[in-house]
Amino acid sequence: METPSSSTYSVDATALRAWPLPMPSGDGDKEARGHVLILGGSREMPGAVILAATAALRAGAGKLTIATGASVAQLVALALPEARVIGLAETDQGGFTEAAVGKLDPLADKVNAILIGPGMQDEEATAVLVRALLPRLDGSDVSVVLDACAMGIVLDESFRFSVPVILTPHAGEMAHLTGATKEAVSAAPDEHAAQAARDWNAVVVLKGARTVIIAPAGERWQHEGGNVGLGTSGSGDTLAGIIAGLAARGAALPQAACWGVALHARAGEELAERFGVLGYLAREIPEHIPALMESFARP
């Protein structure tokens, strides 16, 4: 799908049908569908990593590994019997110690995508961990998605990703990361997302009623849809998980982001039809994803 930097492409059903997701062959096994690693969770928020990991599997990833705090690893393993769960040493503030890098390093050559951030609370420790992990992934084919406090690595003004990654901020998070006000970001999302994409060398998914997706070279997409019910606790974790699952299957970063945003929004629309606009739960979003992928793929 060619996207000149001077144009903004709308992400709708027609566009998605023209941009099909990678599909394994009929005799492909779970390895062919991709291995996703979800790094996140904490004592106070183990559910976030469960939501993200469930969404990654619903998006079609074949293998799942979760790395989370040792204090909640058994709980997470019981909630997700499909996953391998690794317990990591924790900081008092809800992050992971630098010792986590040693436990994760052997996975660098075995996974296709990694999502870092859901449910992590110690922004400083998370930035240290991400900074230590990224060089191990450079030069590999691993797609990296950063969500929640893992995006805090860009607070260092001199920081720039050597290889593009996906970042998934909402307006408030973008304000925190850039020093702008939330009102300024909301008033000019394209401008702020484009500047961040260039400065950070990242595919920026600036979430909102109109979500803007901008790649480092300036390619732009937008999605309008969903409803206010998606603004609920855990919804962002599910979106990040969907994107990571699609990337694990082999979707390029912009494609994984665009498809993920569209699937997440349409799932919210279906849930609103079932329950009403307010009151459906983030945990209910992933179950809609497989059928929606099939629906978007059909002419």
Rank of each mutant, 00 (worst) to 15 (best):
V128Y: 01
A272T: 11
Y280E: 12
F161Q: 04
L167G: 15
G231K: 00
E270S: 09
G40W: 05
N227F: 05
A209P: 12
V144C: 08
A297H: 06
L206K: 01
K110Y: 14
H176D: 14
I50E: 04
A180W: 11
A77L: 14
G208H: 06
A83M: 06
G279Q: 00
G218H: 03
R266F: 05
P20K: 00
G226R: 01
A125R: 00
K63D: 09
E273G: 12
K207C: 11
L146A: 01
L281Y: 00
C258W: 07
V228N: 05
A127N: 01
I285S: 04
G95I: 03
L271C: 07
S235Q: 03
A193L: 11
P169S: 10
Q255Y: 03
A171G: 15
G95M: 03
A79R: 11
L137W: 08
P254H: 11
L133A: 02
R43C: 12
E224D: 14
A187D: 15
V76W: 08
V142Y: 12
E2I: 10
L88I: 10
S7M: 14
S71Q: 06
A55Y: 03
L107D: 15
A77M: 12
L177E: 11
H35R: 08
L115S: 08
A32W: 10
S7H: 15
L39Q: 02
L21P: 05
W19H: 02
E219L: 01
P290A: 04
P254A: 12
T126P: 01
G172S: 07
D156Y: 12
Y280W: 12
N227H: 02
L37K: 04
E124H: 03
D190N: 12
L64F: 14
E123Q: 07
S233L: 03
Q255K: 11
A73T: 09
L137F: 09
A257F: 08
T68S: 07
T65C: 13
A171Y: 15
T97D: 09
T238V: 10
A55W: 00
G225W: 02
H192N: 08
S6E: 15
A252N: 06
H288Y: 10
W221R: 05
L88E: 10
L239K: 00
S186T: 15
R283W: 04
W259C: 04
A193I: 08
A13L: 09
Q222S: 13
I66P: 14
T168Y: 14
N201R: 13
R58G: 05
M1F: 13
L129R: 00
S186A: 15
L246G: 03
G28H: 09
Q255N: 01
H223I: 04
L133G: 01
G28R: 05
I116W: 07
A217N: 11
P4N: 04
A113H: 07
